[in-house]
Simulated assay, not measured.
Amino acid sequence: MSVITEYDSLLLDLDGTVYEGGRALDHVISAINGSGLPVMYVTNNASRAPEVVATQLRDIGLESAQASDVMTSAQAACQMAAEKIPVGSKVYVLGTDSFRDLAHVAGFEVVASADDHPVAVLHGHNQETGWAQLSEAVLSINAGAQYFASNLDSTLPMERGRHIGNGSMVAAVVHATGVSPLSAGKPGPAMFHAAAKTLKSTRPLAVGDRLDTDIAGGNAAGMDTFQVLTGVSGYYDLVFAIPEERPTYVATSLQDFYSDAASLRPGVQGGFTALIDGSTLVISGGASTATPVEALRTALAVAWSSTQTVTDVRADSPAAATALQSWW
């Protein structure tokens, strides 16, 4: 039975899962359009308004995408702030114009300077953020403003590679103030619960490329999780993953929505075997037609069920050595 038949909705990450730098990743369009399931795009990227994201999705071939199908961490941050401070409060938004618009819609007075005495700072990704904007945030927080972050992703996958993410900018503010923000985005479960509620979904599948946000968040929300190897987290990240960041399924791309569900779970595959020798995970065997991800799922079944800590991986057969060369 294919994965897609076991769920009633898809909660999809965007960067590194659906697209990269605005380009649709391989198999994404056919996989989503052919699923027949309601979809919510749940993204930690707070730099774009839901309407802009929906337009981008339509432009790459996801023609049914609407703003109501998008939930950004900026929306979640405004909701979180509304639970902590009174409506009408002054806030300083360290982010894009769309984030400021969302804060205004949420009932806040958006100010431009720490001199306006904001009671909160809302911090989201903006490619134009620089020293001056960060300094206004620091001055506000040092004067007593509460600190909210849309997300804490350290990097953002783009076509040229991993760029600085919001979490890295947040780290500068934390270093200057000693104050850590409340984060509204993944890996917290709130966005996943809100997305499922919007879709009236009782059995959603959380899909993403990043273990410490997408998968950890879906797991925290009590959902099954589907990891694709098209973005930030790779083969070795999975082997060394802590329990909270281990996905239900390991897939090469969204095309695996249509693969047998059992084949995507960690387990012996492709003629490979694995064992732990000290702190080394040793992979052996392997059929001539075996794939690197089959070696991975075989390795994960052993690594994740062991009480020993794995710090290294070694190949003990030609097929295993070939597979490991593709893990980088």
Results as ranks from 00 to 15, higher is better:
residue 164 I to G: 07
residue 161 G to M: 00
residue 131 W to M: 12
residue 161 G to P: 02
residue 98 S to N: 02
residue 131 W to F: 15
residue 149 A to Y: 02
residue 145 A to C: 10
residue 153 D to F: 01
residue 123 H to P: 06
residue 168 S to W: 03
residue 117 H to G: 05
residue 175 H to N: 11
residue 138 V to E: 05
residue 125 H to A: 09
residue 118 P to Q: 02
residue 116 D to N: 14
residue 106 A to I: 04
residue 102 L to W: 03
residue 122 L to E: 03
residue 149 A to N: 10
residue 122 L to V: 05
residue 106 A to T: 01
residue 116 D to I: 08
residue 139 L to C: 13
residue 151 N to F: 02
residue 127 Q to C: 06
residue 110 V to T: 02
residue 121 V to L: 05
residue 106 A to R: 11
residue 132 A to G: 03
residue 144 G to C: 13
residue 151 N to S: 15
residue 155 T to I: 00
residue 152 L to H: 07
residue 138 V to A: 12
residue 120 A to C: 07
residue 125 H to V: 04
residue 119 V to M: 13
residue 111 V to P: 01
residue 165 G to R: 02
residue 104 H to L: 12
residue 148 F to R: 09
residue 170 V to R: 07
residue 141 I to C: 02
residue 128 E to Q: 14
residue 172 A to T: 12
residue 167 G to V: 00
residue 100 R to D: 02
residue 100 R to A: 15
residue 158 M to S: 08
residue 124 G to A: 06
residue 138 V to H: 04
residue 118 P to L: 09
residue 125 H to K: 05
residue 115 D to T: 10
residue 103 A to C: 08
residue 103 A to P: 07
residue 163 H to A: 14
residue 169 M to A: 08
residue 113 S to F: 06
residue 140 S to I: 03
residue 132 A to S: 15
residue 118 P to A: 12
residue 107 G to A: 07
residue 172 A to Q: 09
residue 116 D to C: 13
residue 142 N to C: 13
residue 98 S to G: 08
residue 174 V to I: 14
residue 98 S to A: 14
residue 174 V to K: 05
residue 115 D to N: 06
residue 116 D to F: 09
residue 149 A to I: 03
residue 127 Q to K: 12
residue 166 N to Y: 00
residue 168 S to R: 00
residue 102 L to G: 06
residue 158 M to C: 02
residue 164 I to H: 10
residue 125 H to W: 09
residue 170 V to D: 02
residue 150 S to M: 13
residue 149 A to K: 00
residue 171 A to I: 05
residue 138 V to M: 05
residue 136 E to M: 11
residue 125 H to Q: 12
residue 132 A to F: 10
residue 125 H to E: 09
residue 100 R to Y: 07
residue 112 A to K: 10
residue 174 V to A: 05
residue 139 L to I: 11
residue 167 G to K: 00
residue 124 G to M: 12
residue 164 I to M: 14
residue 154 S to K: 14
residue 127 Q to N: 11
residue 115 D to G: 05
residue 122 L to W: 11
residue 158 M to G: 08
residue 120 A to N: 01
residue 156 L to V: 00
residue 104 H to S: 15
residue 154 S to G: 06
residue 169 M to S: 06
